[in-house]
Design a protein around this nucleic acid. Structure first.
Length: 695
RNA sequence: GGAGCGGUAGUUAAGUUGGUUAUAACGCCGGCCUGUCACGUCGGAGGGCGCGAGUUCAAGUCUCGUCCGCUCCGCCA
């Protein structure tokens, strides 16, 4: 893996000189090299010691270097044109700040500053060297400023500026001047002015970056992640983190104003058996024992309520050892909130205020005064998913009853049969329909039935020949079918029907341009089932978590009808994304025990795993409840990012690895021995000898 | 655990039914240039196609394996 250096000489650690751009010094006996040459030679020796010479094919450069291996004079006449080449390394001596202070950021200067002497510092974005005038666009996280080096204004500064390259770090001092008539750049915030540099300091050089530091460049994500610190310099990412900070501060201000206390909870905590896989941390002091990283601070925030602290919040890292997605990372950030003596309305009202404030203060969007609400049942019935995107229609319609006992076995015998009518869908090509069929199969569907209603009203479909006239009539009426439509059907088990049609609906919404990209449609989904059946474990598990309170009276029927019990839980959905969820919690030991029992967790097991919680509930736990928001997902929505990685400073790849640090990695056997851990043979092969760990 | 897509100069990509010396643009290095702003212009260097086998007279192109990245299903109380 070669570094994209500019010259033939590799730089070692601590070498700030930036030599190695051109050929080695001895190739060019010119006056330029007097300054700082000694220093450089010393550095070079140091660098070579630390980094043994490696054949570097890339930087092989024929020319004077080879010429010099000939006896002096033999070929020199032929080389004379080449010896005019210059080496700017003498100017690439890194300087101290020497007391210089920044007066402005790179986005600040406007016509109002004309005539001022300013000092700006940052990275070189572009260099336009005209031989005479040199233009440098200087970048910091805020923006760009054009600077001018003129031989008439400052000859020394101008001469040295020939050495400046992209991503060099410089401090520029100069006078703000209006740009000449007709030379303003309207696409730049600072486009009315330019800074005439009078003196400047080179604060650091830079190797050529592996990819350009510009938004318009589409570098491979692997590369961006390996050089994440360079990726972060790009305006798009910088903007994301500036906004993320704004959002976090907005949350703090809002919750603080309502009396919520920001309290930290442990990161080294106890494994919880329910839910996602835990990340485990071995204990050295207690060999053979493990901490777990929190999947959420759920139990701690409840205990803070038992502790009488009344209102808590935390912007907190949570960890789940599950597979990654475009919107899922193994460590992510939650806005975690809990309050005492609330009902659902209070929490939802507080949460709406929070989200409304957040959107107003970050992107200036006014969300509706009251968010739309929908029961879980309605969401599943009409949208097939528990996080509907309500920016558009195309609702799912249950048509099972029409075909019960009918002649078309696929429909008549289906556990669930739903249809989705798409106005204008007549234009879909065979290929598109086939693609949608493949799409449906991802969710376990066997196929995808369809009917096109042609302009003359005739139905075109591979399946209508199996329908009776009565079925056709009822179907047309139920769906309101008109010419130009296509109707898709899914006949399958409930989960497959809902998932395939629910997700197809989203694709169709996009295909037919039904989604207003600028709209924000928040939606509360309420009345979730308390439990859901896990066919793998063959038992009922908590849909939300086992501390969620059932709705009044639901506990009584839980044994007879576990699937029918409803929870005091609510999710906040925005444009089809789940951005938050919470519940009123169980706050009496009796109810909590009953819940564990319903989940098939025995008294002894409950005692071992959650004994401290049950005990706490015995000591006057107040009624309490809360909510948690996925901060990363909210920032994704606010910034329009397609990937959660674009809103996390140092994210992990799909294999949960960090391209930059190469975490996770093997550790010394010594470290393992201290922890009382021995790796199984197969794994141990990859582990290093204990003495060999690279620094 | 599974499905799909991808890996070719520093980067982004092209590369035909396997066939001379693997293309281009940008970037890089150097020359020239006093009004550019993704400056221009002239010249130059730079890769053997993720890695490993195999088929073949011949492999970037075909086969198998493997590694890495992305999207998705499962999973994510």
């Amino acid at each position: 893996m070669l570094h994209p250096g500019r010259g033939g000489v590799r730089r070692g650690p601590g070498d700030h000189q930036g030599h190695g751009r051109g050929r080695a010094d001895e190739d060019r006996p010119r006056g330029l090299r007097q300054l700082g040459a000694e220093q450089r030679d010393a550095d070079q020796r140091g660098a070579e010691q630390q980094r043994p010479a490696k054949p570097n094919r890339r930087h092989h450069r024929p020319g004077p270097r080879e010429a010099n291996t000939f006896p002096k004079g033999t070929h020199m006449t032929e080389q004379t044109t080449k010896t005019d080449e210059r080496d700017y390394d003498e100017y690439r001596v890194v300087q101290d700040l020497g007391g210089w202070k920044r007066t402005h950021s790179c986005s600040q200067l406007t016509a109002a500053n004309v005539g001022e002497e300013v000092t700006i510092m940052g990275w070189v974005q572009f260099r336009r060297d005209h031989g005479g005038l040199i233009f440098i666009d200087l970048r910091d996280r805020e923006g760009l400023t054009q600077t001018v080096f003129s031989p008439e204004v400052a000859p020394e500064a101008h001469e040295r500026a020939h050495a400046i390259r992209i991503e060099y770090v410089v401090a520029l001092r100069g006078i703000v001047k209006p740009r000449p008539e007709g030379m303003t750049n309207t696409s730049m915030h600072t486009g009315e002015i330019e800074v005439y540099v009078t003196e400047w300091k080179l604060l650091n050089t830079s190797d050529t970056p592996p990819f350009p530091i510009e938004d318009r460049v589409d570098a491979a994500e692997m590369l961006r992640l390996k050089y994440r610190y360079l990726d972060l310099r790009r305006p798009r990412l910088a903007r994301n983190f500036i906004l993320r900070n704004k959002a976090a501060q907005s949350v703090r201000r809002y919750l603080d104003s309502l009396g919520f206390l920001e309290i930290e909870t442990p990161v080294l905590t106890k494994s919880t058996p329910e839910g996602a896989r835990d990340f485990l941390v071995p204990s050295r002091v207690n060999q053979g024992m493990f901490y777990a990283l929190p999947q959420s601070p759920q139990i701690f925030k409840q205990l803070l309520m038992v502790g009488g602290l009344d209102r808590y919040f935390q912007i907190v890292k949570c960890f789940r050892d599950e597979d990654l997605r475009a919107d899922r990372q193994p460590e992510f950030t939650q806005i975690d909130i809990e309050m005492s003596f609330p009902d659902e309305e209070q929490i939802m009202g507080m949460a709406e205020g929070l989200v409304r404030t957040l959107f107003a203060e970050t992107i200036g969007v006014a969300l509706p005064a009251a968010f739309q609400r929908m029961s879980y049942k309605q969401a599943m019935d009409e949208y097939g998913v528990d996080k509907p995107d309500v920016r558009f229609g195309l609702k799912l319609v249950d048509v099972k009853d029409i075909f019960v006992g009918g002649g078309f076995k696929v429909f008549a015998g289906a556990p669930m049969l739903k249809a989705i009518r798409v106005p204008g869908g007549l234009e879909l090509s065979r290929k598109e329909i086939d693609d949608y069929t493949e799409f449906a199969k991802i969710y376990g569907a066997q196929g995808l039935a369809w009917i096109k209603v042609k302009e003359d009203g005739e139905w075109q479909s591979p399946i209508v020949k199996f329908f009776s006239e009565d079925e056709k009539a009822k179907l047309a009426e139920r769906l309101g079918m008109v010419p130009g439509d296509i109707v898709f059907f899914q006949a399958a088990p409930a989960d497959v029907t809902n998932a395939s049609l629910g997700n197809l609906r989203l694709k169709l919404g996009e295909r037919f341009g039904l989604i207003d990209e600028k709209a924000y449609a928040p939606l509360w989904v309420t009345d979730f089932p308390l439990l859901e059946y896990d066919p793998e474990d063959k038992r009922w598990v908590a849909k939300h978590h086992p501390f969620t309170s059932p709705q009044p009276g639901q506990m009584d029927t839980i044994a007879s009808d576990p699937g029918g019990a409803l929870a005091r839980a609510y999710d906040l959905v925005l444009n089809g994304n789940e951005i938050g969820g919470g519940s009123i919690r169980i706050h009496t030991p009796g109810a909590q025990k009953a819940m564990f029992s319903a989940l098939g967790i025995g008294e002894q097991e409950a005692e071992e795993k959650f004994g401290f919680l049950i005990e706490a509930l015995k000591f006057g736990a107040p009624p309490h409840g809360g909510i948690a928001f996925g901060l990363d997902r909210i920032i994704m929505l606010l910034t329009g990012s397609k990937s959660i990685r674009d809103v996390i400073a140092f994210p992990k790849t799909q294999k949960a690895a960090c391209q930059m640090t190469e975490a996770p990695n093997v550790v010394d056997n010594r470290q393992l021995r201290e922890l009382g851990i021995r790796l199984r043979e197969k794994v141990a092969e990859a582990a290093p000898e204990e003495t060999k760990n690279e620094a």
